[in-house]
Design a protein around this nucleic acid. Structure first.
Lengths: 161, 161
DNA sequence: ACAGTCGTTGACGTCAACGTCAATGACTAG
DNA sequence: CTAGTCATTGACGTTGACGTCAACGACTGT
């Protein structure tokens, strides 16, 4: 036994499992590590990468920011740095080394969070406006279609009568 | 006079003006033409591209689909093809060559429009969910911050008293 | 012990969406 | 008519985000 099935243990995953579970390639995971986006939780004695569930969540988060927000990996890197600082605070929270500093970091993280929130909201609003114009367009076309059909019905009437 | 300032005229613009007005490079406009995304309305006798306001709108539309929806130029090309068909119908609408065919094309275009609408809505909803989780996170952090401050106040009290 | 699979590190390839440069031609103010 | 600016067509370069391949080492069931 070399540390596997303990129910309270981290439950480490190989790169292949992670790739399969989140639907990315192994190459992508190694690339993310290369640019400092996702450092695996550890390594096997032989040097194989070992990931945790948290790492999976992180990759999923990265993909979401990519696809939904259209962020570059560099922008995502910045965002996740703030997230990492928050996590550092959470772990520090249970040790309470310097409450004043904790509060400062928390405020800093809140600012970052608010900035992201604003950008997400802005995008959401833009999408809302686009939706409205699309609906308006569809309504106009539907009306035009109705008129066309009415005209056609009249023509058919006079043609058949 | 070679067709410029008539108030009812097309009011053609050079590539430089268009690039400046929509905030893209000339290279980008030529590239869009190269891949068939934006064919200029005409050319000067010497071969310079001439664009209309409609072309400007089109470029703006392209950039919006790129930035907000994250579509590739190829996907945008497909979308705009449907849009172009609709425009063809609109111009045909005043000539009424074949109302049955018009109706068919209109229905086709409506389907495309609905597909886009659905995708926009899906993205909007995803953004909404992200917003909710961000707000929840912020709330938790704000609470943690409050607790920290309270603890600090107590500490300060005992320290000062 | 060993075959078969999984993983590792380079290194080079790729694709979209342009940027940049060079050589040449178009257009415009004076 | 001419200087200065704007535009045109290649052609090659670039950047991000990976894909792919080779040569090798790690791990697993039997």
């Amino acid at each position: 036994m070399s540390g596997e099935k303990g129910p309270g243990e981290p439950a480490l995953l190989s790169i292949g499992k992670v790739a399969e579970q989140v639907g990315v390639s192994e190459r992508t995971l190694r690339y993310y590590e290369q640019i400092g986006l996702l450092v695996p939780a550890g390594h096997s004695p032989g040097g194989c990468r070992r990931y945790t569930r948290a790492d999976i969540d992180r990759v999923a988060h990265i993909r979401e920011l990519q696809s939904v927000m259209g962020y570059s990996l560099e922008e995502i890197h910045d965002l996740l740095r703030a997230q990492d600082r928050l996590d550092a605070i959470r772990s520090a929270y249970h040790q309470a080394p310097e409450p004043a500093r904790q509060a400062h970091l928390l405020e800093e993280a809140l600012v970052t969070l608010d900035q992201l929130r604003e950008r997400v909201q802005a995008k959401s609003e833009r999408l809302g406006r686009i939706l409205a114009t699309l609906d308006a367009k569809a309504a106009r076309y539907r009306q035009a279609l109705g008129e066309l059909r009415e005209a056609e019905a009249v023509t058919t009437d006079s043609g058949a009568g």
